[in-house]
């Protein structure tokens, strides 16, 4: 291992950055979709309509009991079957990530909503606000403000999880690195570089979240 070859990293940088771009796009889309769907699930879970609350609870517990890789395989197999035509790995994976992450986001958002005092809800209702108005103007804004750090931390976890698209051969950052590693027989360089890049990105992001958390707590 005396010959650590930096040039293999530099030569393939454009290809690797393209992969990183895919990882980031997937993270952003799945995070947006996951938070939207997660909010709906959290509201359903806290709903006074029993069947709705039970259904949301089942959805959340079901997805949380499965490995992400299995969910990726499921949708990679199911989506083309349901649509009747191939749609490419990206969309299957995006659906899998969104539905999977929604279960995790739902639990975070539920905790956020329940942390808003009951008095707030009672006051809003007493003022004549409807359920939707109460949620929209009173509860959710406060809940999200308190949740931002946790939601972002989950985003960092999601970014790391996107590396699992490797199992269906989608060219994200890690898969790109692996392709070059095996093609050029440069496993040591490529995997250490991949590890270092993830470490730097995720560590900086989590430090950023920590700063934000401190500022919000003031």
């Amino acid at each position: 291992m005396g010959d650590f070859d930096v040039s293999v990293i530099l030569d393939n940088l454009p290809f690797l950055l393209q992969g990183l771009q895919l990882s980031l796009v997937l993270t952003a889309l799945a995070m947006t979709g996951g938070i939207v769907l997660g909010t709906l699930l959290a509201l359903a879970r806290l709903s006074e309509l029993k069947p709705l609350a039970v259904a949301a609870g089942l959805y959340i517990d079901f997805f949380r009991s499965l490995p992400l890789i299995l969910v990726i395989f499921w949708f990679y197999f199911l989506v083309p079957l349901v649509l009747g035509r191939p749609v490419g790995g990206f969309y299957s994976v995006l659906i899998a990530f969104t539905l999977f992450e929604a279960a995790y986001y739902a639990e975070i958002i539920r905790a956020g909503i329940t942390s808003v005092g009951r008095g707030q809800v009672a006051a809003a209702r007493a003022l004549g606000m409807t359920y939707t108005q109460t949620m929209h103007h009173i509860v959710l804004p406060q809940a999200f403000r308190a949740m931002v750090p946790v939601l972002l931390t989950q985003g960092i976890i999601l970014f790391q999880d996107t590396s699992l698209v490797y199992v269906v051969g989608l060219k994200d950052f890690l898969t790109s690195a692996e392709l070059i590693a095996t093609r050029d027989q440069r496993l040591v360089e490529m995997f250490l570089f991949a590890a270092a890049l993830y470490l730097v990105l995720c560590f900086s992001a989590s430090q950023g979240v920590r700063l934000l958390q401190r500022r919000l707590a003031k």
Partner: peptide, 14 residues
């Protein structure tokens, strides 16, 4: 801060 899959590759290949 390093994805679990990368850990697998590091231990196996590197």
């Amino acid at each position: 801060n390093i994805p679990l899959l990368v850990h697998f590759f590091l231990w196996y290949f590197v």
